[in-house]
Design a protein around this nucleic acid. Sequence first.
DNA 1: TCACAACATGCGCGTCACGCATATAGTGCG
DNA 2: CGCACTATATGCGTGACGCGCATGTTGTGA
Lengths: 204, 204
Amino acid sequence: MSDDAMDLRARNKQATREAISHAALRLAIEQGPHGLALVRVHDIATAAGVSPRTYNNYFSSREEAICSFQADQSRRAGKALRSRPADEPLDQAVIAAVIELYTDPEPDKAGLRMIMSTPELEGEALKAFTMAEGPLAEAIAARTGTDAGRDLFPAVTAAAVAGAIRVAGRHWLAPGNTESFAAILRRALSCVVPATSPEDPQDQ
Amino acid sequence: MSDDAMDLRARNKQATREAISHAALRLAIEQGPHGLALVRVHDIATAAGVSPRTYNNYFSSREEAICSFQADQSRRAGKALRSRPADEPLDQAVIAAVIELYTDPEPDKAGLRMIMSTPELEGEALKAFTMAEGPLAEAIAARTGTDAGRDLFPAVTAAAVAGAIRVAGRHWLAPGNTESFAAILRRALSCVVPATSPEDPQDQ
DNA sequence: TCACAACATGCGCGTCACGCATATAGTGCG
DNA sequence: CGCACTATATGCGTGACGCGCATGTTGTGA
């Protein structure tokens, strides 16, 4: 839907961006969590078919490029929640939105494992997951009629949801796990969203 | 308490570590959130009275050095919760522990503002806050009798608490705010901890 | 078709993280 | 108390990186 709405410039730009990001993640996965230092900028750029300088026009670090897909995913969280029916209770809406967002295609386990189990990527990975909080908070505020600027509830809930997603991902990747990501997500989110009763005022 | 329990080596080591961390934060604050690039490794090392090479023996990046104090703070979260009376309900224990931990001395507003409003520090700042989650999850698991390895509840709650602390800090730093940090913390934590009824089983 | 804007690329500089070798200081034992 | 040992501090050299700047190339709009 967005491809047609963009002019050639924007489409090429997004294409190269995705090419770089994809190449970076692929090379990182090839080397594994312990060989990230071996993934050189030159390799990423070459694999993406661009110059090293161009790579730096899109990303200012390998970590950012590698985690870019997760950041994009997180950015869609607000929209996902807004697209839920307005009469749906907050907890159900959040759970449904998140599960839909994170299981439309089942996430790439190798990619997720890479960014979540590589120490050097920890900071960027956290940034990526945290990017969901802003839009999520606004969507929650809109749904609950609260003010995202004044009340703490929307931002705190958004942070809790983002944290639950992160923990769910970690659990999903744990060795010996057989559950589906959707099931784990539902359980994790149940720990945080229903707890906050909608009619309990936070203001004052 | 810990100073006497350490030999000279360990005490010197911690002293230099703190000297470097303190110098890094001070210099960063002097330049402000928009001048982080001007804080050179050489300056930090000189201000701390060590060689640049020694600085790198303690921290592998300026960001890590600057956010070190916050990371240390977060590491104490587990101990703070464990030191609460065992018969205290989880929600009250968490709130009391966090408030005590974060207001024993009122936190340095300039330092917190630095690490929370500087884009280049975002990753490290998130890592620093996230460091509370592990110990917190174990303390919560111990208190609720759940297994931190199997159940999602401890880890999810810990992540939610850490997120609430982070949001509370942001709110406390917001321009025009007059509330005490303790009050904001209490409100933020109230959005996540009481929600999870202790008698509601998460397993299955 | 043409002038303009946006993007890709090459080059060069300053900085950084870190391995290695060496000097120095703290520790434990005879 | 002095000595061997280990941990830490420092200097040096190297490879890689981020980014400003200038230039070529490719869409865009009149």
